[in-house]
Design a protein around this nucleic acid. Structure first.
Lengths: 210, 210
DNA sequence: TCGTTTTTCGATCACTTGTTCGATTTATCT
DNA sequence: AGATAAATCGAACAAGTGATCGAAAAACGA
């Protein structure tokens, strides 16, 4: 129990596409839904069982612990998002275009994977040790991705402290959306992305003065 | 138990300044510290007892339930901050100056009451029913305060949807600070406030173009 | 069909949780 | 000092938690 695998109990090991894979996916997305709504620690393993139709013990065939379940969600979601973003960051075009794309992609991913992304955003601290470290690595890569774009727009070095701060301000805007977004009220997410980019690039004054 | 008081079990009722008041304060601030660090649901009432030196049952003289304890923290903290901000919002000067002041005040309050403010920011959902409603009212007033300043800077009506969004972007920047601020690394908070205001007013482009 | 592996179940364990309550101590007032 | 009220304690309870494990069932390959 000291070194063991981080994931495989049986289903997730090997990676072969057995008839098990779609069940794991449903398990992950149902769990993400519950955890996004109530939070990780307030979501019991029994809640997940009820939601998915599994029996209590039966689910432990798919993950080895509750924390492992959380890890699987974060690892899968974050890897997928990161892949999208690192691709976008290496595209041609102006720095401003890249930044616009990064923000737009993040919001689009938020729309299509709200639950999973919320769990990634707010439940890092519920992981420990190796699992924490592995997700933290993905986070840092994501941050670096955005920070580079910000630095380019500013014409500064990515190490400049102001760049770090401004990048974190942008992540604040992006991540805080989970706290208020209402699909009824705030419908067009493209529009929202434009508004955010506009604020980030030109501010409330709209680039009229300094 | 259907209607009962929201707070008073004995200590917090009446409001007279007995020798009990300082103990309540220590109880609240210690609890806020634990809850800020681990989250509300992962902070047990026994943790609070150990931290404060009280016995397990002895603390129930000061609050009537764990949720009540959380409510007391939020009510006290938020009221105090709100008072500061509503005063600042009604001062003379330009709209830009008012917005700058609101952001600066929030950051200053963050510095002096980090734990309590973090609890206010992230644990609203841990309250229910009346307690939730009461804190939600304070939140709406706070939002309104900021939204008015934003609207004035933009020269728009406070009801304009763009105003709502941009205000929420600003709160995102402000509240996300809890996730990354490191007093060693990000020392001067005044500077941080300036950077944020600068981004909010002029954007990354620094007001050079539109 | 039979034997084997994969998958599922249900009971159970050890542990932590918030809360209650009567008894006990401490402070306050006359 | 004695009586009343405020404050504190410690033991106990009921409920819920994550996790384990051997047995049973289902799917599979021969």
């Amino acid at each position: 129990m000291t070194t063991g695998d981080l994931t495989g109990t049986g289903a997730s090991s090997g990676g072969r596409t057995s008839r098990t894979a779609p069940k794991l996916e449903k398990l992950l997305s149902s769990s993400a839904g519950l955890m996004a709504q109530r939070g990780f620690s307030q979501t019991s393993i029994r809640d997940v069982a009820n939601e998915t139709g599994f029996s209590l013990g039966g689910m432990y065939y798919y993950f080895k612990s509750k924390e492992d379940l959380l890890y699987l969600i974060q690892e899968k979601t974050f890897s997928s998002l990161l892949e999208i973003q690192e691709a976008a960051a290496s595209h041609d075009g102006t720095a401003e275009e890249r930044l616009r794309k990064l923000i737009g992609n993040h919001l689009a991913y938020f729309l299509s994977h709200a639950n999973e992304l919320k769990v990634c955003t707010f439940e890092l601290e519920s992981l420990q040790d190796e699992r924490y470290d592995r997700i933290a690595v993905l986070r840092r890569r994501y941050f670096s991705c955005m920070a580079h774009a910000v630095a380019e727009v500013l014409g500064e070095s990515p190490n400049h402290p102001g760049v770090r701060h401004k990048t974190l301000f942008i992540f604040g805007m992006l991540n805080w959306i989970f706290m208020w977004f209402d699909p009824e009220r705030d419908e067009p997410v493209d529009r929202l992305g434009d508004e955010m980019v506009d604020l980030v690039l030109n501010g409330l004054n709209g680039g009229k003065d300094g």
